[in-house]
């Protein structure tokens, strides 16, 4: 990991998103205290925590495979942190019951983890980490082991729980949809660095790098070259199209290669043959996707474009169509 700088606000649902091996789990382990940074500083609630051992950090982790204690009942698993903290037995009983109520597991309080389904184990892990009321709850791919339907349900529950408790959640995932749905803010990590951080809308609408544009949702990439640059702004010409685009960014110089990201749903597809405004293209593939239809159209020599368009009217494979977009939908992204 290299020069990772993040700040998470109190009461925020924050996600670290990235492919496996990007450093997101390592970041989480640094916060939990299971790894130490070579340099830099970690602050929890404003105080330096680099040297604080995990057992004294006001941070709890929901482990990827839950790491429930197999020899203890659900109840005793949840009580673990409270017993260690020396809470009075009567209070422990009340708080464990409340925590299990919160995740709707009181019915299985006396069972052992291996007698529970994956979703139930996940909730026990959540209750066990929440019952000690940590300042920050860390979640390492908490829903990764669940099937799709259950994962969707748990996403909503997790979000509702976080809002209700007002706790800070830091959540690691490789599932971009999960990160977008759950988070107040998120950071996309790539090769041990933070590629971009912001709200889901900021990251989706204004990806800063080619990687972010590609990893969060889908993107088409168009290459071009800066033709003029000055104090008033810059203009770039798109390869193969000859069209010029206004650029708001500064620091560009003439002759520089640039890349634009274009979301498939921002591409307009017009059927009806010749005379329709836009760039000519040929439909190569059509996939009906429920909410909309995905097209792959041959666009420039050796280049196809992904398009998501309403289901009707539908273009057929081989049909000549025209594609177009608003200049504002082209987002300048950096190369890596």
């Amino acid at each position: 990991m290299d020069r990772v700088s993040l700040s998470v606000r109190r009461g925020e649902f924050f996600s670290l998103l990235g492919p496996s091996g990007c450093g997101k789990t390592t970041t989480l382990r640094l916060i939990a205290g299971f790894a130490t940074p070579d340099s830099g500083e970690l602050r929890i609630n404003g105080t330096r925590a680099n040297e604080v051992p995990p057992q004294r950090r006001d941070v709890n982790l929901v482990f990827q495979n839950y790491a429930l204690f197999p020899h203890l009942t659900v109840e005793r698993n949840v009580a673990f942190g409270l017993e260690i903290a020396g809470v009075r037995p009567a209070d422990i009983a009340v708080r464990v019951r409340d925590a299990l109520d919160m995740v709707q597991l009181n019915a299985v309080a006396a069972r052992r983890p291996n007698q529970l389904s994956g979703g139930q184990q996940q909730r026990v892990a959540l209750a066990r980490a929440l019952v000690t009321r940590p300042a920050v709850l860390l979640l390492d791919e908490p829903l990764g082991a669940l099937d799709l339907k259950l994962r969707k349900d748990m996403q909503l529950e997790l979000r509702a729980l976080q809002k209700k408790l007002g706790l800070t959640f830091i959540h690691v995932t490789h599932d971009q949809e999960e990160a977008l749905t759950l988070s107040d803010r998120l950071a996309v990590m790539h090769r041990g660095r933070v590629a971009q951080q912001g709200t889901p809308a900021e990251l989706y609408e204004r990806p800063a790098t080619r990687f972010v544009a590609d990893f969060l949702g889908e993107s088409n990439f168009l290459e071009g070259e800066v033709v003029s640059a000055g104090a008033a702004g810059a203009r770039a010409r798109l390869d193969g199209l000859g069209a010029e685009v206004e650029l708001a960014a500064d620091g560009l110089r003439a002759g520089q290669r640039v890349t634009f990201a274009l979301r498939p749903e921002r591409v307009q597809l017009r059927t009806g043959g010749g005379g329709v405004p836009g760039w000519p293209a040929t439909v190569e593939d059509v996939a009906y996707g429920g909410r909309d239809t995905r097209y792959r159209v041959a666009f420039l020599p050796g280049k196809s474009l992904l398009v998501r368009a309403p289901n009707a009217p539908r273009a057929q494979v081989g049909e000549r169509v025209a594609v177009g977009w608003e200049p504002a939908d082209l987002r300048l992204v950096s190369g890596d």
Partner: peptide, 20 residues
């Protein structure tokens, strides 16, 4: 990971040994 979980929940190494 069970020892990590115990430490995360506040257990000292000795407590983690005795309880896990």
């Amino acid at each position: 990971a069970l020892l990590d979980a115990a430490a995360d929940l506040g257990a000292s190494p000795w407590q983690a040994f005795r309880r896990v």
